[in-house]
C-alpha cells in the first residue's frame, strides 16, 4: 500500500459518519456477502480501510463496490454499526461525482421512460393473462415531463445533462 498519496480527510468527503472510524477490521461483513465470492472479490472490510486511510487513487479505480447485490447482510451483522451497505452506496456516489464514466446507464433509461425495463408495452401478453392496461408514466407524457424536470434539479442529472438530452 502506498501511503504517500493518502488523504487523511477523505472519509469526510465519502462517508462522513464517526461509526466508520469504529471499524476494527473484524471481517464479519465478508461472511455471507455474495459478492465476496466474485473475481475480483468485493471485500467490504478492505474498502472501509481504504476510505479511512484516504487512498483516493485506489478507491477511484475500484470497481468492486458495483458488484454489491444490496442484500444488506453486512448492514445487519456489523458489530460496530458501520452500516457497510450505506458505505458501499456512499463510495459509488463519490466515484460517480468524480468520474462521469461511472454514471449508471440505468438512470438514463429511468429518466427517459421512468423505468429500467420497458414497462407496459407488452399489452398483448398482459391482455392474454387477463391483466388491465397499466397507467405507466411512459403513457402520461405530461407526468413524465414533470418527472424529468424534477430530476434536472438533482446533482447527477444537472451535472451530466448532456447524457439526458433527447437525441
Amino acid at each position: 500500500m502506498d501511503f504517500s498519496q493518502s488523504d487523511k480527510d477523505l472519509w469526510k468527503q465519502i462517508y462522513h459518519t464517526k461509526d466508520l472510524l469504529h471499524c476494527f477490521n473484524c471481517s464479519t461483513c465478508l461472511s455471507g456477502c455474495p459478492a465476496s465470492h466474485g473475481d475480483p472479490p468485493l471485500l467490504v472490510r478492505n474498502l472501509a480501510r481504504m476510505v479511512v486511510y484516504g487512498l483516493e487513487e485506489d478507491l477511484l479505480n475500484d470497481d468492486t463496490p458495483w458488484a454489491c447485490v444490496s442484500c444488506s447482510r453486512c448492514e445487519e451483522m456489523c458489530p460496530m454499526d458501520v452500516k457497510p451497505f450505506e458505505m458501499i452506496l456512499a463510495i459509488r456516489r463519490w466515484q460517480t461525482s468524480n468520474d462521469e464514466t461511472r454514471v449508471p446507464t440505468a438512470i438514463v433509461e429511468i429518466y427517459k421512460r421512468g423505468y429500467t425495463q420497458s414497462v407496459g408495452t407488452n399489452t398483448e401478453l398482459r391482455a392474454s393473462l387477463g391483466l388491465p392496461e397499466l397507467q405507466t408514466i411512459t403513457k402520461m407524457p405530461e407526468m413524465l415531463k414533470l418527472y424529468q424536470e424534477m430530476l434536472m434539479k438533482t446533482p447527477v442529472v444537472s451535472e451530466n445533462d448532456y447524457m439526458f438530452n433527447e437525441e
Binding site: W66, S70, L89, R92, R93, T96, S97, V103, P104, A106, I107, I110, T116, L151, K153, T154, P155, V156, V157
Partner: peptide, 10 residues
C-alpha cells in the same frame, strides 16, 4: 444501482 448510487437528491 441507479439513483441511490449517484446522490441523495435524485
Amino acid at each position: 444501482g441507479s439513483f441511490p448510487s449517484t446522490d441523495d437528491d435524485s
